[in-house]
Design a protein around this nucleic acid. Structure first.
Lengths: 218, 218
DNA sequence: GCAGACAATTTTGTTCACAATCCACGGAGG
DNA sequence: CCTCCGTGGATTGTGAACAAAATTGTCTGC
């Protein structure tokens, strides 16, 4: 479903060309390491070379592409070590957001969180991995919005875009949902209880578990 | 091909124009809210308008300038609330870096940290505020380097550039060194002891103190 | 057959001129 | 006197042409 694609793009009036290229990078349209020639992109996206140029510069700054002087750009490959480092930062920032979310939780928020939790349990019980994966991003997004911390949200969005690939492979690993489900439920409980410290701890424990799983990969 | 040998320094040949403009922004050369007209900057910095354009785009992405379509750019004013939000993120990320630093501490590192601590005590005792301020950034830098967490370092650098102004005003406040000195010493002790959890707690306590001070400002 | 240098091609980087856009100012009408 | 609407000036955004740089392919000399 083309569900709310809003949370990932905090930049409102940003370059549309950059957004499209980014989309195609994170969706795997471009293979990692693939060369990105300005003229070709200009043709593919029906945009001027200048626009493509600006877009590439922005994406380089986001860490998605790598540019060498007079050599062109290629989509950046993120090693497992780098993915771990990124996720470590994500762990602490998302912990902060979780604590904030616990502080700000309204009854409506609590209801929605509990609903997500119930749906998650059902999805895991039924073995519907893709549904569970969708609920996963919905949960994280919901907590991010509840946190009302624009700066953290921006940082997280940028970090997340970098290692979607690793993140995705991880979600499909057999047995992974059984591990992450109780962690997710713990997060929901702590946030609903309005306990910032517990929420931060639960979020960090969950992301730490993601890190451990990442390191076992490959 | 050994193409994967570009690990540590993605910021090599970055735009020199952007660096100069950023320098002048954080050094207060441009007043907050001041308009930045491309043609004028092009003249002042002896650079082409295209270069200035790229630089402004990059600085916008860093959160230092604000651009409105067809209206031009101005240096962004960061409210106290935003400065607090930025520092909250900084708190958790710097906590992570502190923990990593404690893990990686070598005897040489410990010696240098202790030296910085001693110099700090002397500076505060002697009332030399500017010296203390310099030691302050030196300490934070040292810990950042020790953390060996490139991603966190990059995030921190970007966050810090945003509210240099607030940070600077804070350092000059009378009585502030007396508050922050013991916090700094606690950080040094925890890192030197190689205790990640204590280091993270000490760093977070220190930055939390900065936040409290920020909120009393205005 | 190999090493080195030279030329050709490809790709990026820069500059220029033009088009599109937006705000401010001023005049006409109510 | 106030409001609404056009016009003008300034500023940004875009596209095309030009210049610079680096890689690749080729050719000659040993």
């Amino acid at each position: 479903m083309a569900a709310s694609t809003a949370p990932l793009a905090p930049k409102v009036g940003a370059e549309p060309t950059a957004d499209r290229i980014r989309e195609d990078i994170v969706s795997g349209e471009f293979a990692p390491g693939q060369r990105l020639v300005e003229a070709d992109l200009s043709e593919s996206y029906q945009a001027s070379r200048g626009a493509v140029r600006n877009a590439l510069q922005q994406l380089e700054h986001e860490g998605l592409v790598e540019r060498i002087a007079n050599r062109g750009a290629r989509v950046r490959v993120v090693s497992v070590e780098e993915a771990v480092a990124i996720t470590e930062v994500r762990m602490v920032v998302e912990g902060l957001v979780g604590a904030k979310a616990a502080q700000n939780a309204t009854p409506e928020d609590v209801a929605e969180l509990r609903e997500i939790g119930a749906a998650m349990q059902a999805a895991v019980a039924g073995g519907e991995i893709m549904v569970y994966s969708g609920l996963n991003v919905r949960l994280h997004d919901k907590i991010r919005v509840m946190g009302r911390q624009d700066v953290a949200e921006e940082v997280l969005g940028r970090l997340l875009a970098r290692n979607v690939r690793h993140q995705f492979r991880l979600a499909l690993r057999p047995g992974r949902p059984q591990v992450s489900l109780p962690e997710h439920l713990a997060i929901i409980e702590a946030v609903c209880a309005g306990d910032p410290a517990a929420a931060e701890a639960a979020v960090r424990e969950h992301v730490a578990s993601v890190i451990r799983a990442l390191q076992q990969t490959d």
